[in-house]
């Protein structure tokens, strides 16, 4: 069902942290903090990912001049087993913590839940997500130095984290509506083609949103999915057109925006919860504040498989959560 946020909840501060490849991409200069070594002064890659979350949230809070006591709740998630990057990385904040797992959809999921919390409790909430290429490779694929080849449909996990602060009465970017996704059996079991696995989930959520809200794609300045990459982007456009929704003029995907795909060897594009989060914080939301985008549909897309489910031959379950944002 369509959820309307009635109480004027706005995203009033945000910050993004990234790694070497993200710095080389077209959005590189918009990051608040970059560590080219991607270590973030930590011993393990998992801790590096947690540290990215800490830096992102600290920067977002500093920008707004907030201290720990001002934030009511934290909604945070990542790709690691048991979401350790969020719980360990954000341990130093004295803020109640709600851990989330939505795979790569977590940016939209955490912003959605944070806005509901801010709406019902009239308090400030934070949404933080991250992914790290090195920790994700270790958990989901092969050791980092393993000499393998990737298929053209494979995507690169973005090393990045972004934090968003939401509350009433400050900032320009208002959260208007939410549409949570349904878990979709994509029938795709190739973990190197997550774009095709997630596209049906994006189509499902978008279609339900247009039907329930009575709007059309042309009512929005931009419709951006999280990390479908080249493959999922094309399939989504095609499937939406079959349903009578022409996305051509307004549609984009964070997986295609984060890297310069013509130069950087990233196959079908970027992925991971960091992908949509950092693209929102470095490109989409600044564009909204400048007034270039007034009405945005931001759709976090997630592939919910685990290494175990993939090895046991289960198809990839996917999900897409939609956030409708608009400029005051």
């Amino acid at each position: 069902m369509l959820v309307s946020i009635k109480g004027d909840v706005r995203i009033f501060s945000y910050a993004a942290v990234g790694g070497a490849q993200e710095a080389k991409g077209p959005l590189g200069r918009a990051f608040d903090f970059i560590d080219e070594s991607e270590r973030f002064r930590q011993k393990t890659w998992e801790q590096s990912e947690g540290e990215m979350q800490r830096i992102a949230l600290r920067k977002a809070m500093d920008k707004a001049g907030l201290s720990d006591g001002d934030v009511g709740h934290l909604f945070a998630g990542d790709l690691m087993n048991q979401c350790t990057s969020s719980s360990y990385g954000l341990m130093s904040f004295d803020i109640p913590h709600v851990g989330l797992y939505g795979a790569c959809s977590t940016a939209a999921e955490s912003i959605s839940l944070a806005s509901v919390m801010s709406d019902t409790t009239d308090s400030i909430s934070a949404a933080v997500t991250s992914s790290h290429f090195c920790s994700a490779e270790r958990q989901f694929r092969y050791p980092l130095e393993y000499g393998g080849q990737r298929t053209p449909t494979s995507q690169r996990t973005v090393t990045g984290s972004a934090a968003f602060l939401l509350g009433r009465g400050r900032g320009k970017i208002q959260v208007k509506q939410l549409m949570f996704g349904r878990s979709v059996d994509s029938k795709i079991s190739d973990i190197c083609n997550m774009g095709a696995a997630m596209a049906p989930a994006a189509v499902d959520t978008l279609t339900r949103f247009f039907e329930e809200s009575g709007t059309q794609p042309q009512d929005y300045d931009k419709i951006v999915t999280g990390d479908l990459g080249r493959e999922g982007f094309e399939i989504t456009k095609m499937m939406m057109a079959q349903k009578g929704y022409n996305l051509d003029a307004v549609y984009d995907d964070c997986g295609l925006l984060i890297y310069n795909l013509a130069v950087q060897d990233m196959h079908a594009g970027g992925s991971g919860c960091g992908c949509s989060a950092v693209v929102a914080a470095t490109s989409l939301f600044p564009a909204m504040e400048r007034g270039e985008i007034r009405n945005l549909l931001f759709i976090g897309t997630g592939a919910l498989m685990s290494p175990t489910s993939a090895q046991q031959g289960l198809p990839i379950a996917s999900i897409a959560h939609l956030v409708h944002l608009s400029v005051m």
Binding site: R182, S183, V184, K187, P200
Partner: peptide, 9 residues
């Protein structure tokens, strides 16, 4: 929601 085998193909 479930996709069918045709989508896989």
């Amino acid at each position: 929601m479930n996709m069918d085998e045709n989508y896989k193909k």
